[in-house]
Design a protein around this nucleic acid. Structure first.
Ligand SMILES: [Mn+2]
Ligand SMILES: [Mn+2]
Ligand SMILES: [Mn+2]
Ligand SMILES: [Mn+2]
Lengths: 220, 220
DNA sequence: ATATATTTTTAGTCTTGTCTAAATTTTATT
DNA sequence: AATAAAATTTAGACAAGACTAAAAATATAT
């Protein structure tokens, strides 16, 4: 049985290592989890002891299969609960993350599966992030960051890279939600800003915005 | 902010003191929470320090208003989550308690209230226990223990005193659920057993059963 | 009233997860 | 290759929450 803290470390290693593929540095974990590097070292030894990670001193850390499965299960629960909060309890997409951080640690396989069924087996959470199945498998979708789209492209918003409530509020204010159609009117090479058309209104967005919005190109 | 452990102690004191009315002994808490008396003493000092309880050495402990409110809020969440699991996710009433023990510690007033609304403001949980409102107020219903009913009484099952999965399974096996109509056919004074009629079938039940079933007398 | 039994508290230890400060290893720079 | 810088680990401490064993207070029984 894993503790809350162990689960948070596994999740961090998973995300930092890009789906648990490559290994991760102590400092990166410390920064992500907002703790000290020495605390991370202690925890890595413990996780290695329990076979959740492969760890050799000074060499970084990577998830074992057991660790990867634990991490994806926590992520699965996190995202299912986010869907529940938005779809069933009418929360906005900016309000759900902190609550999901708590709910993701509830231990009951039956509950997770029942929730999944109750929500009609959603494939993505309210921020466009894919929900892994019980075996930790994601379906990959081909999404690009909006800044990579070209002039005259018409795209659909399919996700956000930054789920902070500040960014989400900005999007709400400008009526950009998942599924919104975005047309690239022009791109300004000097500062990488772009003019887009969304919901009939034109809008100038900075590089910071376009780098954090995922889209799918619909047509050209 | 209260920890999980603090909340469990407050809940125990609340229940043992009969809705936080009278004071509770160290040993009683230890037994309820399945911990040692010395651990209880430590925690009581901490809870007193934080003004959740009134505590004087060797004199037992009672909840302050702040403590009572915290306890009822945890109980509120526990019972709302039980309703959610049974009514929305189709869990049986014997499966929900352990999961609710986890969910009751999730901290979000907005979530609790949204859940309450989503469930249509239920007044009782799946075991017939009343759900307090946000201010910690219960509506009292007049229920008696089945053993107190008289021959020829016709009653409705409104709750259980023992929520253990063993007892609930016994009830399920005999088709006794909340709302079931129970007729007292006869009472045996020697061992306090009774013959009842439930759903057309007659059934002999021991004192242990009739002492743990709450009913309301419907007619005579 | 005194002795005995029970309850409760204290003292000291342990584990988990965190921290600071110091030591060590690795990486980068001259 | 030697040195400086950065990253990582170790050593030692602390708080929360638990435990055991011993001491102290309260309750019970003679
Ligand atoms: Mn989230
Ligand atoms: Mn999300
Ligand atoms: Mn319960
Ligand atoms: Mn209940």
């Amino acid at each position: 049985m894993t503790t809350f803290s162990e689960e948070n470390y596994l999740k961090a290693i998973y995300h930092l290592g890009n789906h648990g593929q490559h290994s991760v540095s102590t400092n990166a974990i410390a920064e992500k989890i907002e703790t000290k590097a020495s605390s991370v070292t202690d925890m890595l030894r413990k996780l290695a002891e329990k076979d959740y990670v492969d760890y050799k001193k000074y060499q970084g850390v990577s998830l074992t299969e057991k660790g990867r499965l634990t991490a994806t299960n926590v992520i699965r629960k996190h995202r299912l609960w986010e869907v529940f909060l938005v779809n069933k309890l009418d929360f906005s997409w900016g309000e759900v993350h902190d609550i999901a951080e708590q709910l993701e640690h509830i231990k009951s396989l039956k509950l997770t599966n029942a929730l999944d069924a109750f929500l009609d087996y959603p494939s993505h959470d309210p921020h466009g992030d894919p929900i892994p199945d019980a075996d930790g498998n994601f379906k990959k979708i081909s999404k690009i960051v909006l800044s990579k789209a070209n002039e005259n492209d018409i795209c659909v918003c399919v996700g956000v890279n930054d789920s902070s409530s500040g960014f989400l509020k900005y999007l709400d204010k400008n009526n950009i939600a998942l599924g919104a159609e975005i047309e690239i009117l022009s791109k300004e090479p000097f500062d990488d800003s772009m003019n887009i058309n969304v919901n009939g209104k034109s809008l100038a967005i900075s590089k910071l915005i376009s780098n954090n919005l995922y889209v799918k190109i619909r047509s050209t």
